[in-house]
């Protein structure tokens, strides 16, 4: 599939960022202050806001039943015009309307698949890191196995076993990134576990669950957030890749990756069919990466001026 960004690609500094005592609200504010000064990151944030805006108000911009999925076979593969801002696709559907509605699915797949991966991977990583020993060994070896199995096999397996729909697609994309989140979280937890404030919590009789979820997890969040932002980008690319091999979203629902992959045979005859979804994917991913990089810088104490 596409490039994967794993824990190993994060500088040690990010992991170290979490070692410095518990984060308070004010510290997040400080991160935001730092982020605000990073023009590239803010640029990314603005673009992402626009994308989110499009997703939220998609129905006001174009009606789903009468525009987005309505076929108009006499207007097939028309170039951009006043009527169709981005032209029409092979069924004469309005590409602009589909792009706007496509933001919903693409964002949802991106964000939710990462959320699933973080929840499962994060929990496994936290448990492994916190308890250590044999449990740690077992969990991490299983993660190694999942990491070694090609994501495409996992994706095809899930889609063919559970059926192709939005949820399974997200699951398919999530599964292959679970091990990398497990690694990141485990690394942070390892560094936190013997810190004084954890000892203190333990001393006052807090349960393991409470310690993990109230004290350790919030403090291990920083690297996860950074990786998550990049992960959303990877997930959007993976969706396009899965569509390319025929395992994308269920038609006629619009989704950028499926639009890009589906339009590839028209590349030379109707450039607009692939160009707009391609650009949308590129710009969104660019924005996510810029924001991710900005967050990483902002969270890294040693890079601060």
């Amino acid at each position: 599939m596409s490039q994967q960004i794993t824990a190993d690609t994060l500088p040690e500094a990010v992991l170290e960022a979490t070692r410095s005592a518990p984060k308070k609200r004010s510290q997040w504010l400080e991160v935001w202050q730092h982020l605000k000064r990073n023009k590239m990151a803010m640029f990314g944030l603005v673009i992402l806001s626009l994308v989110v805006f499009a997703a939220v108000f998609a129905d006001l911009i174009a009606d789903y039943e009468t525009v987005v999925i309505a076929q108009n076979l006499s207007d097939r593969l028309q170039g951009p015009s006043a009527q169709y801002w981005m032209g029409t696709d092979e069924f004469g559907r309005d590409i602009f309307a589909r792009m706007i509605h496509g933001t919903r699915v693409s964002l949802m797949v991106g964000v939710l698949s990462v959320a699933i991966a973080i929840m499962i991977g994060g929990t496994l990583g936290a448990v492994a890191g916190y308890y250590g020993g044999r449990l740690d060994n077992i969990i991490m070896r299983v993660m190694d196995i999942f990491l070694a199995v090609p994501s495409i096999l996992l994706a095809i397996a899930i889609v063919s076993a559970l059926g192709a729909n939005l949820i399974n697609l997200m699951l398919a994309i999530a599964v292959s990134s679970i091990p990398s989140y497990a690694r990141v979280v485990r690394a942070s937890v390892l560094s936190l576990r013997d810190q004084e404030f954890i000892e203190a919590a333990r001393a006052i009789g807090a349960s393991d669950t409470r310690i993990i979820f109230r004290h350790i997890v919030p403090n291990a969040l920083a690297p996860v957030i950074v990786q998550g932002a990049l992960g959303v980008a990877t997930a959007i690319l993976s969706t396009a890749g899965l569509s390319f091999i025929g395992l994308g979203i269920q038609p006629p629902e619009p989704e950028w990756g499926a639009m890009l992959a589906g339009g590839r045979q028209y590349l030379r005859h109707a450039w607009h069919v692939t160009t707009f979804p391609g650009l949308a994917i590129m710009i969104t991913i660019l924005a996510l990466n810029l924001l991710g990089d900005g967050l990483r810088d902002a969270l890294d104490p040693r890079l601060k001026h």
Binding site: Q71, I156, G163, A164, G246, L247, P251, P252
Partner: peptide, 24 residues
Amino acid sequence: VQIAQVLQAQLRKINIDMAIEVVE
């Protein structure tokens, strides 16, 4: 998959709501 989409649109005209299942 494309044929299915046109069929889907055509059958909608006689109130048949046909979902497309793309299966590996």
